[in-house]
């Protein structure tokens, strides 16, 4: 993918089965997940149901279960699974040489000053 990538640091900062957060000043907080299959995903840290912090949910497969009301959210698409309907924005992420990169324009997408660039 073409574009600027933001270096978020080494992969070792997030243990498998866990998530960590990345607040964005003027934008939506991002949750970065590390699955038990050693994959990394980034989503806006807000459940489409009642804005629960997805970063605090249990990760299984490539799904996170929201800590507030147990909605299951796909880490790949941000879509709610099963009977529930809703979607949370995902942020393109790549891992390169042991470091995590996020697509810059997606990180600051909701930020007015950055959009002005």
């Amino acid at each position: 993918m073409i574009g600027d990538w933001l270096d978020i640091g080494p992969v070792g900062q997030i243990a498998p089965g866990n998530a960590r957060t990345l607040p964005v000043r003027g934008g939506a907080e991002i949750a970065i997940f590390h699955t038990l299959d050693n994959q990394f995903y980034a989503l806006v840290n807000s459940c489409p149901h009642k804005q629960g912090p997805l970063s605090q949910g249990i990760v299984h497969g490539n799904v996170v279960t929201c800590p507030l009301h147990n909605w299951n959210i796909s880490l790949k698409s941000g879509e709610a699974l099963g009977e529930d309907k809703g979607c949370v924005p995902t942020i393109p992420l790549r891992v390169d040489a042991g470091r995590i990169y996020l697509l810059r324009e997606a990180v600051v997408g909701g930020n007015p000053s950055a959009q002005a660039a």
């Binding site: 640091g9 990345l22 000043r25 810059r104």
Partner: peptide, 20 residues
């Protein structure tokens, strides 16, 4: 401590510059 700390913080200071 990693359960409590943010990974980093993104601060879009100027329209063209972003710091992590």
């Amino acid at each position: 401590s990693e359960l409590h700390q943010h990974l980093a913080e993104v601060r879009p200071l100027m329209p063209s510059a972003i710091t992590v």
